[in-house]
Design a protein around this nucleic acid. Structure first.
Lengths: 79, 79, 79, 79
DNA sequence: GACATCGTAACCAAGC
DNA sequence: GCTTGGTTACGATGTC
């Protein structure tokens, strides 16, 4: 870790991460823009967020139920 | 903040928090004990956790739906 | 788990856990309240948390961590 | 929102947001992958995060924070 | 004993 | 400016 090769490796990894985080921030900004656009069109962002959260939760709950079912199957030895 | 009164206040607040955190750790340990007991009785903790998570999510989703409904009512001016 | 006795046992265990988790949430809320009180008195919660963390942390762990961080910084040429 | 045109608009906006959020999740996963890669190479992800945080942080903020923390420590009689 | 996953806690930013 | 929601980071737990 003290030699130059490792330092260079570390630098590259960190820069890759920083670039990806920037990209991520960009997407976040895009999302914010869409909310702004929606608001300008007359929709209430708060309601939109609630709907999206609910849709996500419904999906998530389905996944959970599947996982639970699978867990039971394994517990019962039904590979 | 530099005087003794404030320092004493700060010390008391911090000690209260530390005591509460200890109490919290105690409850966490109790929970762990119940899982241990359940396991010893032959139940699978993993399944139990899945069930509890699901029950919590179901409740949470009901709350969300209520909140959404309320949001709509407000948006429509139906206090 | 298939017979009624086991099902009843399981139900009781799960309810005990759910009750304990609720209790735990209560203590967490108490902690939050103390922080709120501290903030209202003029103390900075963020710094308070840092202090509590410090008091909890073994000193030598702290030193180790600082040393490692320093090593990395030097490797990257950060003053 | 009550007529079909608005409902359709709303649907499109929500789907755009959901698509962007998925994209964002993808980038987050990429970041996680890089950390995993770094770990496999022998670097400590925790320290890497600390470095990235440092690089992001304005230096004077850092100094201020240290000074304040020091003030509190002295007030509490922590060496 | 190391890895991955999950749950929790802290931090931050946005909205009211 | 205060509060709330979202995100990130950390620690613990269970697994392989």
């Amino acid at each position: 870790m003290t030699d130059n090769v490792s330092a260079e490796q570390l630098r590259l990894l960190i820069e890759r991460i920083e670039r990806l985080e920037e990209e991520k921030r960009g997407v976040s900004d895009d999302i914010k823009d869409v909310y702004g656009e929606a608001k300008a069109t007359g929709f209430d962002p708060k309601i939109m967020r609630a709907i999206i959260r609910l849709r996500k939760m419904e999906k998530h709950q389905l996944d959970e139920q599947d996982a639970l079912l699978e867990t039971y199957r394994q517990a019962l030895g039904m590979a």
